[in-house]
Design a protein around this nucleic acid. Sequence first.
RNA 1: GGGGACGUGGUGAAGCCUGGUUAUCACGCCGGUCUGUCACACCGGUGGCCGCGGGUUCAAAUCCCGUCGUCCCCGCCA
Length: 583
Amino acid sequence: MRILLRTHTCGELNKKHAGMNVILSGWVSRIRDLGGIKFIILRDRYGETQVVVNPDSDAYSTAQEIGREFVIQVEGEVRERPEETKTNTLTGEIEVYASKINILSTAEVPPFFPGEKVSEELRLRYRYIDLRSKMMKDNIILRHKMAQAAREFLNKHGFLEIETPFLTKSTPEGARDFLVPSRLQKGKFYALPQSPQLFKQLLMISGFDKYYQFARCFRDEDLRADRQPEFTQIDIEMSFIDEEDILKIMEEFIRFVYNSVGINLPEKFDRLTYEEAMEKYGSDKPDRRFGMELLDFTEEFIDTEFRVVKNILEINGSVKGFITDIPISRKIASEYEEIVKKFGLGGLLWFKIENDKVISPTAKFLSNNYLKLKEKFKLKEGDVVLLAAYTNRNVLNEALGTLRLKIGKEHFSEKMKSFDALWVIDFPFLEWNEEEQRYVARHHPFTLPKNLDDSPENIKAYAYDMILNGNELGGGSLRIYNEKIQEKVFELIGLSKTEAREKFGFLLDALQLGAPPHGGIAFGFDRMVAIASGSDNIRDVIAFPKTASGVCQLTGAPSDVSKMQLEELGIIINNSNRKNQKD
RNA sequence: GGGGACGUGGUGAAGCCUGGUUAUCACGCCGGUCUGUCACACCGGUGGCCGCGGGUUCAAAUCCCGUCGUCCCCGCCA
């Protein structure tokens, strides 16, 4: 006969079930032993239910043996709690009077209990315990809901979910590849995909004009709080569309996905060009939630006699800054100054309005200029202006943008609770790589340029990023669908014909065999969920993440492999390079 | 590759600057009392070669060097 392990879950019973005989199964979250009567808090994925064990119950002797995190089965009657002992939790109006308890599985005393405040290292080593906590459980469920909403939207709009290979070809450009040695072709390697970029383009050329995939991507680069060596992208591509089509539907898509978990994003996402974003926020992923736009003060300083500023303006430099109302002092300002100095700026100027007067350590040199600013921007009591001068405008923007963001995080955490979504468009097509002394594709080399015949530094791309709360949620582009243009782009980034053939020959062939105009986007799904969950660490929305050094604390990967495995692959390890040598 | 922070019973922290007692506190765990708790309460108890290696010193958790691990940041991540 089939053994019934549960009739209900620990999250669903309420006073409507009173009088019913039920079976619950789950983990023992807490035991409160009052000497006679015992209370056991039983937990499963759905919630927690209080079990009452009376001394006269048949369950009592078993209950004596139970420890926390045991897996037990409880049979008993649902009763409404005495009025004064009701709580306002989900199942707080009832309890289950145990008539029988069955220990399904015992448990050692765990290194920590679910939800206990312990180091992340320990949580990762015993991830299955950590995942029992409410916070982690909620995050995993949130992730599921968002994934389902994404699929629902895309399916409804005619997208096909298609898988692409994990074992694929190493490509130049972009991140370092994870390599997988081939046994059948000794000495050769597959690469794990950094993204399914080329495959999704090939799918367009195959005629699947709307595609998506929850694609695992692999990049062998150093990690951060928001970066894992393997991560999930919602990868999307469409044919016969222009930039406007994509922005429009993807905006709708993101709104739908966030809406499914109760977060309402604006009806229309603003669009900033890359240049505007850099000028106003000093970042290509601006967080606009706390204002403080960068302003151009050059004009107000054009006549200054203050040496450092004057020198910079004489060689076509700029003065920029922003207005805020934070507390400021020499000490704070010098801390801020350190930030901009890292970008190469000479220093940071500041003044504040106090008793309608301009107060600043540099007032005796610059009070006229400060007064002009006070006039022009109608500065009021308590306003603080931080500003700097520098020759290179881009660097000036970035430095002030970094400072702006730091101040925002320090002083405007309330405002940081809202949501702001926008597009950044018109990215530069190329980027100068100092190290390699060549231009590299800023997005990737398959991006369609807008004005290819312009001088390299002026070429713009049909490329767009979606920004949510200062995070790059996703980015994409229209793609080149013409072999001639593709070849020209390879040339621009210094990829020789032979090299291009060798690395991307299959794409160049495909582009000659009927390629439709197409483009797409990819969203960083882990980041999407992290933002929705309110966490600033994507590890908290990944069931089994790796540490900052790429180690899986749970399994111990990466690990040594046997001599035989290496021999089969034709691989010899150079032991002098090894870390952590044990043998 | 570089910079910073941290590493003390099962867990979280204090002690370290200014070297010297039996390494402190809370939680957990074990035992006891307790029949309406909900972080049960109260009483008693258990448990640490202070990450590892080396050095300085009469003496090192404490100072110095190295190393390993974790976290954060820069570089890197089309």
